[in-house]
Simulated assay, not measured.
Amino acid sequence: MRRRIPHCPHAWPWNAPGRPVVNVPAALVGPGRPPVGVQLPGPAGSEPLLVFLAAQLEAGRRWWERWPPGV
């Protein structure tokens, strides 16, 4: 496990025990830089709730209409 942590330092607390996590866009930060994402973890078995939440956030923020500056 210790060898895997450096490869995914922000996800291992949820991945190791098998808990679901969804990543959603949060902000555009500047030209030539990728969007910043936020991980939303949930308890075991909460995949449907997390996907529903991510879809609601995507619809509300209309990310499909946005592009990082300089693209």
Rank of each mutant, 00 (worst) to 15 (best):
S46P: 02
L40C: 09
N23R: 06
R2W: 12
L53E: 06
G18N: 12
L57W: 04
V38S: 04
G37H: 06
G70I: 02
L50C: 03
R2N: 15
G32N: 07
V29Q: 00
H7N: 12
N23P: 05
P41A: 10
P17Q: 11
P6W: 13
P31Q: 08
R33D: 01
V29T: 09
Q39R: 14
P43S: 11
G60T: 09
V36T: 06
I5Q: 10
L40I: 15
A44Y: 05
V24D: 04
R3H: 03
R33P: 00
E47C: 04
P34A: 13
L50P: 01
W67S: 11
G30N: 06
F52S: 11
W14A: 07
W14M: 14
P35D: 01
E65P: 00
P20Q: 10
V21K: 11
L40S: 00
H7P: 00
F52T: 14
P41V: 05
P34N: 06
P9E: 13
E58W: 02
V21E: 11
R3Q: 15
I5W: 06
I5K: 03
P35Y: 04
L50K: 11
V38W: 06
V29M: 06
P6M: 15
W64C: 04
V38R: 06
P48S: 08
G60L: 08
A16L: 13
H7Q: 13
G42W: 10
V71S: 14
P9G: 13
A11W: 03
P69M: 09
P25E: 01
P34H: 10
G60V: 05
L49R: 14
W14V: 07
G32P: 03
L57M: 05
R62F: 04
R4D: 15
W63F: 08
M1Q: 12
G37M: 08
P48E: 08
S46E: 07
E58I: 02
G30H: 07
L57H: 04
A27F: 04
V38G: 03
P43L: 13
A59M: 04
G32T: 03
V24Y: 01
A59F: 00
P17A: 08
G18E: 09
G42S: 06
G60S: 05
L28E: 00
A55G: 15
P17N: 15
V51D: 00
N23T: 15
H10I: 12
P35W: 06
P31R: 14
G30D: 03
L57P: 00
A16V: 14
P41W: 10
P6V: 09
L50V: 13
P31F: 03
P13R: 02
P13L: 12
L53Y: 05
W64D: 00
P31M: 08
G18A: 12
G37Q: 09
P34I: 03
Q39L: 05
L57I: 11
